[in-house]
Design a protein around this nucleic acid. Structure first.
Length: 514
DNA sequence: CGGATTTGACCAGCGC
DNA sequence: GCGCTGGTCAAATCCG
């Protein structure tokens, strides 16, 4: 504290030289305490400074007793120091001044001040973030509530006609759906906004049948079935065809959980490792030789918690064995370690987006802050993403193989990769594979809506397959959301939505692209 | 010795 | 109905 002049640009030497004349008055250091003036002072300035010093010292009772002896170097910062009487006695002596020690103390004081300020700033930011989050969630809640109200109003009016079309809402109807009408007014618009901003009517027309399907599932699928992560696709499709009746949100939510497990998130990335650590614990329970691939496919299930339904398949690409294809399915029923949260959320968001058409009313899809965060990430993701709904499972594939090659390069603008890097996913740098996968995959029984989406690598059924590859698109998720919105909007809309892909660089794929 | 892995058997769906 | 395929089970085996 007494050493401020020293810490302020090495003025100490000069000050020391000026001290001898004033040393008797314990004032030489007073000149050094002037933080705001660089010019030399005259005696009047010194007096003024002493006045300030005395004033400041009144605030610090700890040094009051040493006021005269301490040479008045108190700058107020002394309030936070732990100076002891012994320290000041050293100053009194004026003989054994431990410059280094005092400098250290001054620096400590400064650091404490900075730390205190940082903490205060941090607290302010936290409060701001909390408030912003609350506001956002509140708006989202209101929006969903409004949409639900409208949906309820229209539901009664359309229920009969929908019942007639229930069966037609199954897979065959949605097969030809294409990512044509992306209708993205702006790349900056969030995916959620796009999804929720579609016309209520279109939302209703889709949601009514979706809800019926979900209710059917709730009735016919027992909760314990959810533990069977991969489930039985055929049963699902059969359930789809069943009749149903609604029983409220709880049923919808339960049904959604029962159905969402079918959605998959597949990640393609280059890796030499047999299996990549993704933050979760897996146990291999099977291995099979898949058709058309000389490399065996390994089956893993999550063992972080008893009964966790999440499972994953690991298989090398037949064309390029350096590419590891990891497919996740299921919903963790346990807390994830922090390291696993981010990418898990990303995959959740991907799956949620994939299924958002059927989970519009599900807050997991819209309101979950984690998903929102992940969606934001996805929005900025430039990784190759492919939506696939080749029967029986809708799958969204994140192709990181290209990004992996230059993950550390200056041209890597894949936020997903960058995020993973910043998040400490060291292995990502080695393999290009995000480590955190396997979070909730929400899927609704209306998977048929995506049945027309197709993995490019797989054989395509002409007129029934669509893939949405979005290379190097900084707004991939937004475009994806818009594409899904287009799908959700119904067959009546998809035909007249052939225009405008806006500025999203979204490659819409349809029959002509296959 | 306990947990993880391997591997053949089994089951169900789907296409012919 | 039969065969193919994907997915799962469970006993055997391996490993620390």
């Amino acid at each position: 504290m007494f050493r401020f002049p020293v810490s302020l640009g090495g003025q100490g030497d000069n000050l020391k030289q000026t001290q001898p004349s004033d040393e008797q008055h314990h004032r030489p250091i007073m000149d050094e305490v002037d933080f705001f003036r660089s010019e030399k002072r005259d005696d009047q300035n010194v007096i003024t400074e002493e006045t300030h010093r005395l004033h400041v010292k009144r605030e610090n009772s700890r040094v009051d007793d040493d006021d005269d002896r301490s040479m008045g170097i108190n700058t107020g910062l002394n309030l936070l120091t732990a100076n002891t009487g012994s320290d000041e006695s050293l100053v009194d002596d004026g003989l054994s001044v431990d410059m280094e020690e005092k400098r250290t103390k001054i620096e400590n004081t400064q650091l404490r001040e900075e730390l205190k300020k940082s903490n205060e700033e941090n607290q302010r930011l936290k409060e701001m973030l909390s408030q912003t989050t609350n506001n956002f969630n509140s708006l989202q809640m209101q929006l969903v509530a409004v949409m639900r109200q409208e949906e309820d109003h229209h539901h009664l009016a359309t229920i009969e006609s929908k019942d007639k079309d229930t069966n037609r809402h199954e897979a065959p109807e949605m097969v030809p759906r294409q990512f044509i009408d992306l209708g993205l007014p702006s790349a900056e618009v969030s995916s959620d906004e796009r999804i929720t901003s579609r016309s209520p009517q279109s939302l209703l027309e889709d949601s009514s049948s979706r809800q019926r399907a979900k209710r059917v599932l709730e009735i016919e699928e027992s909760p314990e079935n959810e533990s069977n992560g991969w489930g039985n696709p055929s049963k699902v499709s059969k359930h789809n065809a069943s009749s149903s009746n609604g029983n409220g949100n709880a049923i919808d939510q339960s049904a959604a959980e029962a159905t969402m497990r079918k959605a998959r998130v597949s990640v393609r990335a280059r890796s030499e490792a047999p299996m990549l650590s993704d933050g979760c614990q897996w146990r291999k329970y099977g291995q099979k030789m898949a058709k058309g691939n000389p490399c065996p496919r390994a089956y893993y299930r999550c063992t972080m918690a008893v009964g966790c339904p999440v499972r994953k398949q690991v298989q090398r690409c037949a064309d390029d064995r350096s590419i590891l294809i990891t497919t996740y399915e299921g919903n963790h029923n346990h807390p994830l370690p922090p390291a696993a949260m981010y990418m898990a959320s990303t995959t959740t968001a991907a799956a949620s987006m994939l299924l958002s058409g059927s989970t519009m009313s599900n807050q997991d899809g819209l309101m979950n802050p984690t998903n929102l965060f992940a969606r934001t990430m996805l929005t900025c993701s430039s990784s190759m993403a492919t939506i696939s709904a080749s029967a029986p499972f809708p799958t969204i594939t994140l192709d990181l193989t290209e990004s992996a090659s230059d993950v550390n390069g200056p041209t890597n603008n894949n936020p997903l990769m960058q995020f993973a890097q910043r998040s400490g996913f060291a292995e990502l740098n080695q393999s290009g594979l995000p480590q955190m996968m396997g979070q909730a995959l929400y899927y609704n029984q209306q998977q048929s809506k995506f049945s027309g989406l197709h993995i490019p690598s797989q054989s395509l059924n002409a007129g029934e397959s669509v893939n949405a590859a979005m290379p190097a698109n900084p707004n991939f998720a937004a475009a994806l959301a818009a594409a899904i919105t287009s799908i959700i909007n119904g067959s009546s809309n998809h035909q007249n939505g052939s225009s405008n892909s806006s500025n999203n660089n979204v490659t819409t794929s349809s029959g002509d692209r296959q």
